[in-house]
């Protein structure tokens, strides 16, 4: 049976790589190799996973240096004549092995003003929306919260501006709320202020790593930036606000 070497990060910040050999079967993904290593060689190798089908966003890691879901990374797409490196996401504090502390994301999300429905359209308390109205937010709502976009974002990864910038995942989340046909809330001041949308200089790295293929930069972030600019930097509107108080 064919075999491959997996160079897996063990430990927390003071950890190191450890090489394991795993048997390769057809169709195998990196998560299968990690499971095989757990079951036969390193029972305490820590990783997160749930659905194993790219739907829950738990098994995020960096494979050969690229942020990816382990369950959706096929071995036959990787060069197996050299070790496959598997490391935890770098933008979050390490816990153990492949597991990182992603709790910051949950804290950030809670700061974003929640959905607030406008008055129902029909007497029975329901709403009417056409499919074309919801297509746009449905794209954003595909997000599985794997946080790979957060991991690759240089504002967070290199500059560690976590306190000042909510990151691409939560810009997408805000876009899903702001463009929701029923939503009645206003989040533009927050975007400009505490949520730091100005830090994003639209390099598009987040879009490239999104396993759900959400067009994060073009469809979510840029339209939000435009709304912020329209509100706060449009000279005509500024003048108008001066006079209208």
């Amino acid at each position: 049976m064919a075999q491959a070497t997996f160079r897996v990060w063990r430990g927390a910040s003071g950890g190191q790589f450890h090489d394991y050999t795993a048997d390769v079967v057809p169709g195998m993904v990196v998560l299968d190799a990690i499971h095989q290593i757990q079951a036969t060689q390193a029972g305490d190798l820590a990783c997160r996973w749930n659905c194993k089908a790219g739907k829950c966003g738990s098994c995020s890691a960096e494979i050969n240096g690229k942020p990816r879901l382990m369950c959706m990374t096929r071995l036959n797409d990787l060069p197996l004549d050299e070790p496959v490196t598997v490391e935890p996401m770098k933008a979050f504090p390490p816990i153990r092995d492949l597991v990182t502390d992603v709790s910051w994301n949950y804290t950030v999300k809670k700061k974003i003003k929640p959905f607030k429905a406008r008055k129902p359209d029909a007497p029975d308390g329901t709403w009417r929306m056409s499919q074309s109205d919801v297509d746009r937010v449905q794209e954003f709502r595909k997000c599985i919260e794997c946080f790979l976009c957060q991991d690759v974002c240089h504002v967070l990864r290199e500059h560690a501006l976590h306190p000042e910038f909510i990151g691409p995942r939560f810009l997408v989340y805000t876009a899903a709320l702001e463009m929701h046909p029923l939503d009645d809330e206003d989040r533009l001041a927050d975007l400009k202020g505490d949520h730091g949308i100005g830090y994003c200089n639209i390099t598009g790295c987040c879009t490239k790593v999104c396993p759900e293929e959400i067009t994060i930069t073009e469809n979510a972030i840029i339209p939000l930036k435009e709304r912020v600019v329209d509100r706060f930097y449009d000279p005509v509107k500024r003048l108008f606000r001066v006079f209208s108080g």
């Binding site: 929640p114 429905a117 709403w127 009417r128 929306m129 499919q131 919801v134 449905q138 029923l182």
Partner: peptide
């Protein structure tokens, strides 16, 4: 739906 879920729609919305 009132809490923000976005279901697919019929032609009459």
């Amino acid at each position: 739906e009132a809490w923000g879920a976005v279901f697919d729609r019929t032609t009459d919305g």
